[in-house]
Design a protein around this nucleic acid. Structure first.
Length: 912
RNA sequence: GGACCCUUAGCUCAGUUGGUUAGAGCGUUUCGUUGACAUCGAAAAGGUCACUGGUUCGAGUCCAGUAGGGUCCACCA
């Protein structure tokens, strides 16, 4: 067996095992009726994406779940893939083309799409390779792309179906228009941001009464040429005699526009009058509809003012136009006031420019299954972790708006609608849209394509990714479904994602799942997943969101090189409490690495401590335990092993991964390494004790590696092999079943190894005493290592706790001798639960005053605690109401405190 | 305007049915290289758990309110 090196070098280990796992097909999920399936669908990253810290957290958690499920004997399948990410990808490729001074329109649609595909094949999906460096155990043979042929078929099938069911319609409506991407966006893609600007007070002169003005407040004077009315509240007394009169539009082509009354007007705002510009504001548009007003569009698609804005403004960008408009108004005496103003402006999520409300023809979806989608979350068929996100989810569904699913892009699923050639599609009525003579809607298009013209628009990317949980399993193609195990793997078990896409993706997947899967079966079989775990957002040291533009996100690959994939994984998970945002700290990643090194060295120590015995199975290790040789420490460590196993089981059940990681960290580092391994050093010198002690170490290490494997897969696989737990050709990740706490306990029962809890408690006391003595030594300027002489004045009961552990205690306390006797005069003294310890020095320093001060201080502390405890115990209501355990704990504590207090008193008296 | 979250040690944060003297990591200080590990060990200092009330024998934990920070939703020009 290879010997273990002095420190853990992650790089080679990671490379080797990942390749071996893949070669052995360890990641493949296969239909296996004998096993229970466990499925996760990766949230498909954008095909343009590169690995961020957010991905690291999210995918580490998925890998933890999937690896744990594998160890628990389930058929685990984690399906990877990428999303075609319409706008993002198209933008990237267009940017590259621009470097060559080519625009997509120069190329034309077909050629451009060829370029995009070429880009995807060459540079897309890097992120999936990066995930491999992280150790992600995805079933790579199943990798999906949302524009794979069969996936596209699913997307278009759903479109056609929803159209036929009447959920999809075409309508000319106000949309969020991105003047940079030149496409409509859904409400979810618009981010409201406070924007600093100006608000302008503009006056409009009455036609029938020159010299009389009505003023309005606006932040967008450049749209005044598009004004078609001024609206006031019908009950606003100030304007009662204005309604129905005409005023002159102060900018743009000359026009006289009416004063109208509408209840949408807020009388409190500004002057209580609103300029109505139906083409450029949602509210105005609605007012326009109600009053049958014309909508004058003064902007073109890219946000440039057009001829309807008048010759003074035409051709100007909207922001330049705003400034110019204010100047023109000023010149004409129409500008009453201009003051700085901050308001909320909608920005395009992708292009990060203010969106323009724009009136266009778009395709819309009335969501299906809204009520059912609410019910499954409300009723707990799908559980959210943390639960509070369900409120956010339900609130959105309560106020759901139709979804604008068309995008004026080329990269995406082209809408499967064909118009009869020569038809003006802008003029189609709802009835004509459903007339097969005029409009053809199908998967494959009309037979005679020359007679028809296909819709130019593509579908919103989310209108493909909402089918992810089942389209990836072959839906709707029966053959593909059978081949990919749809029946077996759907519904999936857990979705791990960020709360930021709860509307974009989570809610929509639930609706799609309910609409398209197993409609005749129970609801539990139709939902796309059972548990949704929402991660926190990773922030930088200053609490800012990590983003490319801020450059505050470390490159995970650098972190992997520096700390190892396992170190990174363990570090990030241990600082990620459920559902809380995470402030990234590199030192936590470092401590993940250090933990790996600790694990490595503990195993190294085991290997150096004695011949490796039969570790080939749990039973083999357990068979090597010898109950007759158990001492207190053996009981204590097995007790802690059981407790830790239980804690980890529980943490997994509750999706509390940081709790599990911390439990493992604390157990392994403090209980095992700092105590058990240290006391082992004395035992290993004793031939009688050695074999049993090593068997215990082997058992603890085995169980620890199993529990840690989902968190730190590489190092655990390596050590598993090095310590002989698994044979060549087998893998911890695939061929081993993890024991839960009850299985472990049963094992002990079979071997008649009842864990002695009193012994475990005794070790706890001994630890405390060791710690007290070490502190005592430090207080007295004695080096921890230095061989100190102790004389202990102890009762028989106290000495009985010390004597059997003398060998260990010598080592743990740095003592050359520990003898029972009477206290020496003038020697520093320490009162413990195991007697009063005297430190005998080579050079007696009679610091009576200092010793007295120390003991007096200790007595004060004790007195205070005694008083507190006595007060509680003398409270009758406490005694009658508190549970027995609490009561007894308090009594025991009081007795201990009093004994200690008496001893300190005695020592003080002796000092005089 | 509505909803949710956060406020605990110098820093970043745990603290899941209320229960002894509130924890961890990092940082700081002191001591330590005995063959697992200096990516380490031993120890120390450091907190009126944001504030004010309330419920309770008992509150960091439950309730109400206040202050500060954050997030999401919302058509105030």
């Amino acid at each position: 067996m290879a010997s273990i090196t002095k420190s853990y070098e992650s790089r080679d280990v990671e490379k080797k095992w990942y390749a071996d796992w893949q070669a052995a097909g360890c990641f493949a999920g296969k239909v296996n009726p004998a096993k229970q399936p466990y499925t996760i669908m990766i949230p498909p990253p954008n095909v343009t994406g590169v690995l961020t810290m957010g991905h690291v957290l999210n995918n580490t958690l998925q890998d933890i779940l999937i690896r744990r499920a594998r160890l628990e004997g389930r058929e685990a399948m984690w399906l990877p893939g990428t999303d075609h990410a319409g706008i993002a990808t198209q933008t990237v490729v267009e940017r590259e083309l621009r470097k060559q001074k080519v625009s997509r329109r120069d190329l034309g649609r077909e050629k451009f799409l060829e370029k995009v595909w070429q880009w995807r094949d060459e540079k897309g999906g890097i992120i999936l390779q990066q995930l491999q460096a992280l150790g992600a155990s995805c079933d790579w043979d199943r990798t999906q792309f949302t524009m794979d042929p069969h996936y596209s078929e699913a997307v278009l099938t759903v479109f056609v179906d929803l159209f036929q069911k009447g959920h999809i319609y075409r309508g000319k409506r106000m949309v969020n228009w991105c003047p940079v991407s030149l496409t409509a966006l859904s409400d979810e893609e618009v981010i409201m941001k406070p924007a600093k600007g100006f608000i302008y007070e503009v006056r409009y002169e009455r036609v029938d009464a020159p010299g009389q003005f009505i003023t309005v407040k606006t932040t967008r004077p450049e749209t005044i040429p598009g004004d078609v009315a001024i609206a006031v509240h019908p009950e606003d007394a100030r304007y009662a005699d204005w309604i129905g009169k005409l005023v002159r539009r102060p900018l743009g082509p000359a026009a006289e526009i009416p004063i109208i009354a509408d209840t949408a007007i807020d009388r409190e705002f500004g002057s209580g009058a609103l300029k109505v510009t139906p083409a450029h504001d949602k509210v105005d548009f609605e007012i326009g509809q109600r009053h049958k007003l014309e909508a004058i569009d003064v902007l073109d698609a890219s946000g440039t003012l057009n001829e309807f804005a008048g010759p003074e403004l035409a051709g100007m960008d909207r922001f330049a136009g705003r400034k110019r408009a204010a100047e023109l108004l000023q010149e004409r005496g129409a500008l009453v006031k201009e003051e700085p103003y901050e308001n909320n402006v909608g920005y395009s999520e992708r292009a990060d420019v203010p969106i323009e409300p724009r009136l266009t023809w778009q395709w819309w979806l009335r969501y299906p299954q809204v009520e059912a989608a609410k019910a499954v979350v409300r009723d707990g068929v799908i559980r959210f972790h943390p639960e509070r996100w369900s409120k956010v989810y339900l609130h959105w569904l309560e106020n759901i708006q139709d979804w604008c699913i068309s995008r004026q892009l080329w990269w995406g699923h082209r809408i499967p609608v064909w118009y009869r050639r020569g038809l003006d599609k802008e003029q189609l009525t709802e009835a004509e849209l459903r007339d097969p003579e005029k409009v053809h809607i199908s998967l494959n298009g009309p037979a005679d394509k020359t007679d028809w013209v296909q819709e130019e628009d593509v579908l919103d990317t989310w209108a493909s990714s909402w089918l992810w949980p089942f389209a990836t399993l072959g839906w709707p193609n029966k053959e593909a479904m059978a081949q990919r195990g749809y029946d077996y793997f759907y519904p999936t078990n857990t979705l791990v994602t960020g709360p930021d896409i709860i509307f974009f993706w989570v809610a929509r997947m639930i609706m799609a799942g309910l609409e398209y899967t197993r409609t005749d079966e129970p609801i539990e079989r139709r939902v796309p997943f059972k548990d949704v775990y929402f991660t926190g957002i990773i922030r930088d040291g200053q609490g800012r969101k990590m983003s490319k533009s801020l450059g505050n996100s470390p490159d995970p690959l650098d972190l992997i090189a520096k700390y190892g994939a396992d170190g990174l994984r363990f570090g990030i998970v241990s600082i990620a409490p459920q559902g809380q945002d995470i402030r990234f700290q590199e030192d936590r990643i470092e401590s993940g690495k250090n933990f790996c090194n600790k694990l490595w060295n503990a195993c190294r120590f085991r290997q150096m401590s004695g011949e490796m015995a039969d570790n080939s199975s749990r039973a083999a290790v357990v068979a090597r335990l010898d109950a007759a040789k158990f001492d207190d420490d053996d009981h204590a460590i097995l007790d802690r092993l059981l407790a830790t196993t239980r804690a980890v089981d529980q943490a997994f059940a509750n999706f509390e991964f940081n709790t599990a990681a911390q439990a493992l960290y604390g157990f392994f580092w403090n209980d095992f390494c700092d105590w058990y391994v240290e006391v082992s050093k004395a035992k290993l010198l004793d031939a009688e004790m050695k074999d049993n002690c090593l068997a215990i170490q082997d058992l603890v290490l085995r169980q620890t590696l199993l529990m840690l494997h989902p968190f730190t897969p590489f190092i655990t696989e390596e050590l598993w092999r090095l310590l002989g737990y698994g044979a060549e050709g087998t893998f911890l990740m695939r061929d081993v079943r993890i024991e839960d706490s009850s299985m472990l306990a049963t094992d002990f029962g079979v071997r008649d190894l009842r864990i002695d809890l009193a012994a475990a408690a005794a070790v706890g006391r001994l630890k405390t005493v060791a710690s007290e003595i070490r502190a005592f030594k430090a207080d007295n300027g004695e080096a921890a290592k230095k061989d100190s002489e102790f004389v202990v004045e102890a009762s028989d009961a106290q000495w009985a706790m010390v004597e059997p552990n003398l060998a260990k205690l010598h080592r743990m306390m740095g003592a050359s001798s520990i003898t029972r006797g009477t206290l020496a005069p003038n020697a520093p003294v320490c009162v413990t639960a195991c007697g009063t310890w005297n430190l005998i020095r080579q050079l007696q320093v009679a610091d009576v005053a200092g010793e007295k001060a120390r003991l007096t201080k200790e007595r004060e502390t004790l007195t205070k605690h005694i008083a507190g405890t006595e007060a509680r115990l003398s409270n009758e209501v406490f005694v009658s109401k508190a549970p027995l355990a609490v009561l007894e704990g308090a009594r025991k504590q009081l007795a201990d405190l009093k004994a200690k207090h008496a001893e300190v008193e005695r020592l003080l008296a002796a000092l005089g």
